[in-house]
Design a protein around this nucleic acid. Sequence first.
RNA 1: GCCCCCUUAGCUCAGAAGGAUAGAGCAACGGAUUCCUAAUCCGUGUGCCCCGUGUUCGAAUCACGGAGGGGGCACCA
Length: 554
Amino acid sequence: MKEKIIKLLEESTALCRAEGLFEVKSLPFIELEVTRDETHGDYASNVAMVIASQARKNPRAIAQAIVAKLKDDGGLLSRVEIAGPGFINFFVREERWRGLLLEIERLQERYGTLAIGTGRKVQVEFVSANPTGPLHIGHARGAVTGDVIANILRASGHDVVKEYYINDVGNQMRTLGRSVYLRYREALGEAIDFPSDHYQGDYIAELAREILSRDGERYLGKPEDEILPFFTAYAAGSIMQGIKDDLAAFGVLFDCYFSEGKLYENDGVMKLLGELQEKGHVYKEGDTLWFRSTAFGDEKDRVVIRDTGTPTYFAADIAYHKNKFDRGFDTVIDVWGADHHGYIPRLKASIEALGGNREALRIILVQLVSLLRDGKPVAMSTRAGEYVTLRQVIDEVGKDAARYNFLMRRSDSQLDFDLELAKRQSNENPVYYVQYAHARISSITRMAAERGMDVPSGENAEINLLKLPEEIQLIKAVIRYPEVIEGAAKALEPHRVTFFLNELAGIFHSYYNKNRVITDDAALSRARLFLVSTIGQVLRNALGVLGVSAPEKM
RNA sequence: GCCCCCUUAGCUCAGAAGGAUAGAGCAACGGAUUCCUAAUCCGUGUGCCCCGUGUUCGAAUCACGGAGGGGGCACCA
């Protein structure tokens, strides 16, 4: 709908310009916005005012000219008005709105899938928590944000891969293995002075007991160097499996798990640094190798190989992102906790240094979640073993409510998550408001079926009977869904879908309370049944994008 | 000290790429159920859009300066 009007405007302004009604260097990008006030029509455009300021003419006169040249052959509009300082307000014919319901019927679960991303490969990398402990609530927000961004991009036609980067190399992994090993010895009766910089959580001791009951005492008395790799691998594998299970329970499924270790195979990281060296972007200082990231806008150069000869995490990350682009992704999206923002310049610098386009990497920063219990802050630390796990949140608050909760806010705004509140308010959570709308529609459909009335096809429903103001309002709201997906995809903002759902559900609830769908009037009942079934379809589609269920009953 | 994010109603937050009179939910108060699910609906009101200057036909939105809150400034990952 929006596009059609924009097209009309484009043709008309071009025509006016060709006839010399005004002079501009170039025609402006046509903006058309959904009006806030219905007396301003359905859509409004400010083109005339934009042209006017360039051409130094009266905006209303220009608007007048543009309107006169509009060629609405398709009979889309009932009225076009010029208002205020020079807005052009468009009133769409009611039957054109109704007609769009047939699109929903035609496309069903594909309604709201677009082609704007066709042919574009996108990777979304998120969560990527170290396999050193179970996921906690802090990871949950990033998980949902990344998951839904990927879903939205997929809906808009992009070829999307969801990826999890496993940091299975380095000190933390060694510490993990050693933590389990010490607990193992402890379980065998040895008095251990457990180091405070090791992982304290109960799951460590559990893993130790698991190994003990499986393999017995055979690791006792052997040199640490020899058996630590086993403990590390066992712990990481087991924890990673737990993470995957938790994510699955949270509705997050990855297409690809990428191991950091893989980057080191065949000297991959070293070869990459060699490539940077050839291009003159690294230099040596003593035994340390530096990447000249300041040449690409970073505030200081960064170490890539320590004086001990081992590469830094950053070196591996350069290789990782190189690898991503080598896999053919047009756009790479990383979802990070906001505390990593200082890392962006150096990573983008590395992409540019390797001849890539820094804009092809988009970083979504998710502000950290401060966890509260009854209004009081709860400290969280994986190492200290103090945290609320994602699993607990799923069990206590529920997957749907938890996901929806995170999706109601822009990801760059800080968020307090109060456990007690989340539990206590679970019945007032907005997610139920939306789900309830869907359940109600299902209930109507069931009731109709009991009375021998199936949801009619659009052809068999006399949709021109849908002429109440609230019906038109409902139709206008529901058919905006594809535009919402488009906007959310371009801005990478999942919360737009959530707000759309709240609004649509609200309009539906209001309609439901005021009007009956199933009445004695068979024709009207069919029309309304058709209407609400399209609402149900769109609710399902949008909830699906959010990874929230659409129940038939509540 | 430098850098990033945030600041809109009592609270939690939107504000759709500069537009017309600033919006929801929660909380408060009053009402609606013989009828498709009351996890619903209807009504009642509140704003120095953090402050200042600027840009322009027009600013919550853009620029600059400042204030408050959060985060970051590793040869950790």
